[in-house]
Amino acid sequence: MRFRVTPHDSSFFDIMAETADCLVRGSALLVQILNADMKDRKELAAKLHEVENEADGFTHKLYQKLNQTFVTPLDRDDLYLLASNMDDCMDYMDEAGDLIVLYKIGELPKRVVAQVNVLQRCAELTAEAAPRLRSMDSLRDYWVEINRLENEADREYRRLLADLFEKEDDPKRIIKLKDIITSLERGVDAFERLANAVETIAVKES
């Protein structure tokens, strides 16, 4: 590990750990929305939006701290990138949950469950990895597994699109479902961008 002359300020990493916890809670709510009856989804989506607002609060807190801190434990741009990518992960999950409610979709295709399961696993892995961001050590398994999950999600997404146009007859339902699965796909992509950022920073810090 390269010697660093910067002081150890753990508060940046505490904020990111709190944001990662929001990702876990948000993904769990997304699973609940998927499995809930239509009448219960609106309340669950509102809870998901509350978690998204909480995550936004942590992101703004970190940005504010960056603006007020002269010397940071990682490069300023790297901390900003990590926070921004976490924010994207949360935003896409919130968007997907919102669309499921707004579009009044009844039963969703089974492959959508697989998509959401991947998102939930990505969130859990991110939360597990968050404490190790302090030292940028022992993170390789994290980004390797996230990349594997993203590849799995890509395959599910392509199959979902194929099934959508083959099995669905209602053009409105096709458009609605495509919007939802695209939001979920973008969520997984956001987790991959976060993992790639972690890998880049870890290599730079080594």
Rank of each mutant, 00 (worst) to 15 (best):
F3Y: 08
T6Q: 14
T6W: 10
H8P: 05
D9S: 14
D9C: 05
S10Q: 13
A17Y: 00
L23H: 05
V31G: 13
L34Y: 14
D37M: 07
D37F: 09
M38E: 15
M38H: 11
K39W: 11
D40V: 07
A45E: 11
K47T: 11
K47V: 07
E50V: 10
V51G: 03
F58C: 11
H60Y: 08
L62M: 01
Y63W: 14
N67Y: 04
Q68N: 08
T69G: 04
F70L: 05
T72V: 03
A83H: 01
S84V: 05
M86Q: 13
M90L: 12
D91M: 00
D94Y: 03
A96T: 05
V101Y: 03
L102H: 04
Y103L: 15
Y103M: 09
L108S: 01
P109C: 01
P109E: 00
K110W: 09
R111N: 09
R111T: 06
V112P: 12
V112K: 11
V112R: 09
N117C: 06
C122A: 02
E124Y: 11
A129V: 06
L133S: 04
R134I: 12
S135Y: 00
D141W: 12
Y142T: 00
W143S: 05
N147R: 08
E150Q: 12
D154L: 02
R155F: 09
R155V: 00
Y157P: 12
Y157D: 10
Y157M: 12
R158P: 06
R159L: 14
L160H: 03
F165D: 03
E166M: 12
D169F: 14
P171E: 00
R173Y: 04
T182H: 06
R186L: 13
V188S: 05
L194P: 07
L194R: 08
A197V: 01
V198Q: 02
V198I: 01
E199K: 10
T200M: 11
I201F: 02
K204D: 09
